[in-house]
Design a protein around this nucleic acid. Sequence first.
DNA 1: GTGAAAGCGCTAACAT
DNA 2: ATGTTAGCGCTTTCAC
Lengths: 323, 323
Amino acid sequence: MPTIYDVARHAEVSAATVSRVLNGNQTVDPAMTARVLKAVRELGYRPNAVARNLRRSRTTLWAVIISDIGNPFFTAMVRGIEDVAQQAGYSVVLCNTDEDPEKENTYVTAALSQQMAGVIISSSGSAKAAKHLMESSTPVVAIDRELAKGAVDTVMVDNEGGAYAATRHLIDVGYRRVACVTGPAGVSTADRRLRGYTKAIETAPIVRRADFREQGGFDAMASLLDDERPDAVFVANNLMAIGALRCLAARDVGIPGEMGVVGFDDIPWADLIRPSLTTVAQPTYELGRVAARLLADRIESPSGKPSTIILPAEMHVRQSSSR
Amino acid sequence: MPTIYDVARHAEVSAATVSRVLNGNQTVDPAMTARVLKAVRELGYRPNAVARNLRRSRTTLWAVIISDIGNPFFTAMVRGIEDVAQQAGYSVVLCNTDEDPEKENTYVTAALSQQMAGVIISSSGSAKAAKHLMESSTPVVAIDRELAKGAVDTVMVDNEGGAYAATRHLIDVGYRRVACVTGPAGVSTADRRLRGYTKAIETAPIVRRADFREQGGFDAMASLLDDERPDAVFVANNLMAIGALRCLAARDVGIPGEMGVVGFDDIPWADLIRPSLTTVAQPTYELGRVAARLLADRIESPSGKPSTIILPAEMHVRQSSSR
DNA sequence: GTGAAAGCGCTAACAT
DNA sequence: ATGTTAGCGCTTTCAC
């Protein structure tokens, strides 16, 4: 790999001049500029970003750390982040933790050691990772899930309100025993959605905790059918809702007749599934955009009180909950 | 941020010793080791990976460049890559090009300047990007889509065979006018699947080219209905198949009665959709694993002839094609 | 076993 | 407008 000195020698100028031409931040004689660019082309020179980053002690990379790349919710979010990032001159690298706190910690450490310009994280709950992030001076935005309450910029949807609306909806259309399948304790979305359900329910709550994944939803639904047989269920994320549907199909439980179902997070093709799934939809793409803007702002002005932005969720009533 | 010299001073040793302790590649006196680790803890020292990478002129990061993060096919593939990468001591950063050759080129350039240890790419067709990759000495593996025929390690499925089987299947169950919706010319999967279709078809081919995305599939299906009205269609990827289904639903065309449908690439929840979708399924996760192994091997021994691995595809016959 | 010193490739003062 | 020079933080000879 040729270095900037090879280019300088080849163009018969100093390395500083090559640097100036390539970074375009100072005026350079047109003739020299041409010589330099010619040398760059001829040698196939590509600047070493590692050296540049070391020298400048900053990068133009954002780390986006999400917990499940298989969940369409996160991928839509990432699109929103990417679009804003690109506009602001940053590139996005994605890190998938697979809901594994240890992997999360690994990626956070990597992002910090790599001197990333900023981090957007939807935490799967690693306390270590959170601590490292808080101690570092690297700008951080929590997205979807809270990191350390109020300590960093945060964007999320109105989880409690959405869950409340979903549960009320089931009760209003006539279901009597409404259960809830939520996510792991300690993950803020799981806890808030559970709270929304609890507030809405008038009878004794029927609750299962699972892992926000499809198999978890399947198992939780099976357990509900075996033990407490509700007549409707509010499932606190999209993948678990799929799992629940699959379980109900396997056991020949009629939807919405024998069991009403509402999910949280839309799923792509929710309308193609039969019966189509009623969901609490989130402005996923927008969530990403807002987080990215917060991060860009925070990088510009690192001091200042962190803000928390709550976006509204919206019920999409479809067949699975209409009695 | 404390540097290695701060730690050295605090522990009253030299920076070299701190480095040795932290990298554990040489024997250091236990007492000193303890002093160093204590200092590290007390200062909250985190090594600067940028400086380390510059000095070593290598990293432990892989760039995985895919063309559509919203496509479950790619995300499953990434899982396979990640699992192998982690085992081999590498971290994976994902770059999403959104089928945009320009973005692809940007990410390739970034990966090379960042001195990434290796690149796994499913190209959206940027010739520039391909050229940069070939000219660099960075190890590259092409996954799913060919990059530069035979010039780099490549893993893909038997696209032609899968497409042939899908088309034959439609003919065998009794459809007479079988059309094909494939992807952009120049993208290897699109071209190979089209060839498989052409080989299987006995009548005049009826073909549409779209962009491998949902809206593209919708539009292509609409165009087919308007102009040539086939009685069955082979759609060359999952998202376009979804689009086609949605178009058929919108126009009240009965599946499989009035129109048989087979897709390429499985979709999650293909079985929940009504009618369920017949697909040519790929060993997606395995595709990722194999690519990752090839990359790890190539990094160990950069010379040697590149290999091409073809994995089999498998028909999953469901309702959408049973007459 | 440990320390001194050089240098990875680049940019940004500073000097001219 | 251009060149000289120092140094970003780390690892790795090379001496001892």
